[in-house]
């Protein structure tokens, strides 16, 4: 079953004067997916999200939200978007309930559905205790949750959250993660974060942005399965050339006493061959372990390399 494409942003570019903040960035998101946007500070995550929500025009590029062009018909396209910016956009002099009611009216929620939808949002974001309190008197965590509540209030098909868990306590973080996971089942969610474990927990896809361009893009599933390297270390001395002679080995890197082997095609074939040869030639294998690429290592590798290179 192919799911509907809800967000289709192609070749986005945004310049501020001579400064190109986002360059040639594309994002595709299907219904029911949660996309994690990762990147170091100043990578262009927030700018990208501002463009996706119609708050900032891209210098170049095209954005389709549920097949509606955001630049040509912003009013229709925005109907499908719920957005939590970096700072929750809340009026200090309104109460939580008034804020949500105002938002419901602005987003054209039908009069007879307003109350039910506000109640759902309040309950989902655990705001029952503060519904009559003024926003000005709420703590940062509560404000953040009201910000999330206004983003999901009108049941948009695309929910865009800029660092949704910032300022929350660990219990709330957990609850909000569960909420985002739930939302991801029937909506599409894009969230930016710099917490890697969060991405692992709730995202289906991850896109790493650095200096305004995509440096990595994959599904987390593929990331888990994509293991093509193995670390081997021996108790006796085995020369690099001996290992390079193995037919299943594509590449070898030496790291102190151990070797990192990259398989030509199949990792299992490489391991089989390695074991067999070891027995034949009397190599004493001390360790064989598949090298899983963690999100951390990918992130650090990509981002570090770039900033170190410049």
């Amino acid at each position: 079953m192919t799911q509907q494409v809800l967000v289709q942003a192609t070749n986005l570019q945004r310049r501020f004067g001579a400064n190109t903040v986002v360059n040639d960035l594309s994002i595709t998101l299907h219904q029911g997916e949660v996309l994690g946007l990762l990147g170091p500070n100043g990578a262009g995550k927030s700018t990208t999200m501002q463009m996706l929500t119609g708050n900032l025009a891209p210098t170049q590029g095209k954005i389709l939200i549920a097949d509606i062009d955001l630049l040509d018909s912003p009013k229709e396209a925005k109907q499908h978007i719920g957005y939590l910016p970096e700072n929750p956009p809340l009026y200090q002099d309104m109460t939580v309930y008034e804020t949500l009611l105002y938002c419901a009216k602005l987003r054209g929620v039908a009069r007879n559905k307003r109350k039910a939808q506000i109640d759902t949002a309040i309950q989902r974001c655990h705001l029952e205790d503060v519904r009559k309190r003024l926003i000005a008197n709420l703590s940062k965590g509560y404000k953040q949750r009201v910000g999330i509540a206004q983003a999901i209030l009108h049941e948009p098909s695309v929910i865009i959250l800029d660092e949704p868990t910032s300022g929350l306590d660990p219990i709330q973080i957990k609850k909000i993660r569960i909420l985002i996971r739930e939302l991801g089942d029937d909506h599409s969610v894009i969230l930016s974060t710099h917490r890697l474990p969060e991405v692992k927990m709730i995202c289906d896809k991850v896109q790493i942005i650095d200096a305004g361009t995509t440096v990595f893009k994959d599904s987390l599933q593929a990331l888990e399965n994509n293991v093509s390297q193995v670390i081997v270390s021996f108790a006796n001395k085995v020369s690099l050339d001996n290992i390079r002679a193995l037919t299943e080995v594509e590449d070898v890197a030496q790291d102190d006493q151990s070797y990192i082997l990259t398989a030509k095609s199949d990792l299992q074939a490489l391991i089989d061959q390695l074991c067999q040869t070891s027995v034949e030639k009397g190599w004493k294998v001390a360790e064989i372990s598949p090298l899983k690429k963690s999100l951390e290592s990918i992130f650090l590798n990509l981002v570090h390399k770039d900033s170190g290179g410049n």
């Binding site: 708050n55 970096e86 700072n87 054209g108 206004q150």
Partner: peptide
Amino acid sequence: ANKTFVLLRSSPLS
């Protein structure tokens, strides 16, 4: 200045 303009901006309003 208070960053509340985003609320109106991202709502379906002209």
